[in-house]
Amino acid sequence: MLRDITLGQYFPGNSVFHRTDPRVKIVLTMLYIVAVFMADSLLSYLIMTAGTILLIAVSRIPLKTVTSGFKTILFIIIFTAVLNIFWTKGENLLFSFGIINVYAEGLIHAGKMVLRLACLLMGTSVLISYTTSPIALTDGLERLLSPLKVIKLPVHEFAMMMTIALRFIPTLIEETDKIMNAQKARGADFTEGNLLQRAKALIPILIPLFVSAFMRAGELATAMECRCYHGGEGRTRMTVLKTKPLDWILLSVFIAYGVGIILL
């Protein structure tokens, strides 16, 4: 269950998207999100879906991995669909039951919303989570936001915090697994009982987890200080990001994709 979080789940590979500059990928992702939200006509939806499928195919991430993220947002998808089916008013009444009226428009709208959410989830996770290592991602973000330093925004510190947070997601998951197993070995049961009992069953996991997370944070801070870390001032990078022709090609493709969806 903890393995379903897609954020920070880098999937190693050597596809076009793996090799793209992280800064460009962040821009691409934003373009993609805008494009998906601008889709309106049937044709634009078709382009949107085709583009997303192409994206997944090019990234060479197994389809099973891409769709595994659905479990986490399944509730939101179902909720959206139900809301749209029952609350959209239209002209073609399909059937009515008491105060519930279902219109054809509602069904179409629900279908569109579900499709949009699915594309959004798969597209962004392929572009960002699966093909970008967390380090590259925050690196790109820091460079992209660096103009904001002018207005005294601590961009480097934000990026560092994000790097650390992303870096520790797998560690915390592993730690949680370990503690869960240790408590299971003492007969703890996390799957049975009512909501209150289940919430109570989490205490033996959460307390040790918090204790070790705080300890780890303290140790990390000390270790960073020992290596003379003092924030972003005057700090240089080991790998300097440089855009390649491939990045510009991808950028133009995505702009074309976005413009296409908006115009059609």
């Binding site: 370990k178 503690i179 197993n181 240790a182 408590q183 299971k184 070995a185 003492r186 007969g187 703890a188 049961d189 205490i203 033996p204 307390i207 040790p208 204790v211 070790s212």
Partner: peptide, 30 residues
């Protein structure tokens, strides 16, 4: 699991109760 008791590596990280006694009693209570 009550028949085959497993003590993990660094098991001190699994302690969570308020007192030592309550923590040892976690297994028997389960």
């Amino acid at each position: 699991r009550f028949k085959v008791g497993l003590v993990f590596q660094y098991p001190e990280y699994q302690l969570f109760e308020e007192t030592v006694k309550q923590d040892i009693a976690f297994g028997p209570k389960n």
